[in-house]
Amino acid sequence: MRLSHLALAVCLFVLPIAGAATFPALAAVKVSELGDLSAMHTIVADTQALVASNDLAGAKARITEFETAWDNVANDLRAKNAQKWDAIDAASDVALEAVRADSPAATSDAALTALLAQLDNPGATNAAGVVTTDTSGKPLPCEDMLAQYRAVQPKAASLDDATKAKVADLEAKGLERCNADDDKRADDFFGQAIQLIGA
């Protein structure tokens, strides 16, 4: 074999191996029907860490970065799958409100965990594992989710005042959406309330 041919054979053998080293990093990125949401996930995870370290100003600034980034792609994501976009959007509304509260630590960790779960698996369940869709992916009737919430509501009596207020707010939002026949958002609000109660 001529030297030039030998060099070419070595290159062809080595290059695929070198290139393969980058594959695991690519495979680690979770890609849903809405596309790669890993950048959004990173912002929310950063926000959660800032809340945990009691850097509330930093957490509020970081969640605003999420809000801006989310709003910038809202139309594109909604066009891909409106139902899954809406599941994340509803969870983001709860997280934004929780982080921006005067005393966010009481409820924001749970809200941010729920948002992370939706970014990882849009529209399936909330962070507490509360199923909000049937086997076909259709939202459960909001009356059914309300019944689940009512069943665990008495446990809210043991919560701190800030969390009780949040649960009551989510209940009100869920009832408003249910009365408007918006099962998807109503289910998400009731699911978030169940999560906060810890049932």
Rank of each mutant, 00 (worst) to 15 (best):
R100E: 00
I43S: 01
R2E: 07
D55H: 04
A127R: 09
F189M: 13
A151F: 12
E176F: 11
D188G: 14
L37A: 09
D187T: 06
V73P: 04
Q48C: 01
D71H: 15
G137E: 11
D71K: 15
T47R: 03
T107W: 00
V51N: 00
A49W: 02
L56R: 06
E67M: 07
P141D: 13
N126I: 14
T22I: 11
T125L: 10
A82H: 13
A151E: 12
A49N: 03
A186L: 11
N126W: 06
S38D: 02
Q195E: 11
N179F: 07
D187V: 05
A87S: 15
G129I: 07
I17M: 01
T125E: 09
R150C: 01
E171A: 10
K138V: 15
H5A: 12
D169T: 15
A87T: 11
Q153W: 03
N75D: 06
A165R: 14
A91Q: 11
D160K: 06
L112C: 02
V167S: 10
D120F: 08
G58W: 05
A87G: 09
E143V: 12
P122C: 06
S32C: 09
T135P: 07
L12W: 10
P122E: 07
T42C: 04
D161I: 06
A199D: 00
D71V: 10
D93H: 04
L6A: 09
A162M: 07
P104N: 03
T113V: 10
N81C: 12
D120K: 10
S103E: 03
G123A: 09
Q148P: 05
S4Q: 12
Q195L: 13
D89F: 06
K155E: 09
L56H: 00
M40Y: 07
A117R: 05
K164Y: 08
L8Y: 02
K184M: 15
E176Y: 13
A117M: 08
L12Y: 05
S38R: 05
R78L: 03
I88C: 10
D46S: 08
A7D: 06
V51Y: 02
G123P: 04
A27V: 03
A18L: 14
T163F: 01
D161Y: 08
S92Y: 04
L77C: 11
D182L: 15
T47V: 02
I88K: 11
A124G: 01
A165S: 14
R185W: 07
D182R: 12
R78P: 00
A172Y: 06
L159H: 06
K84D: 11
K173N: 12
I194R: 14
D76V: 12
T132P: 00
A91R: 12
A128F: 05
A156G: 04
P141Y: 10
K184I: 12
D89K: 13
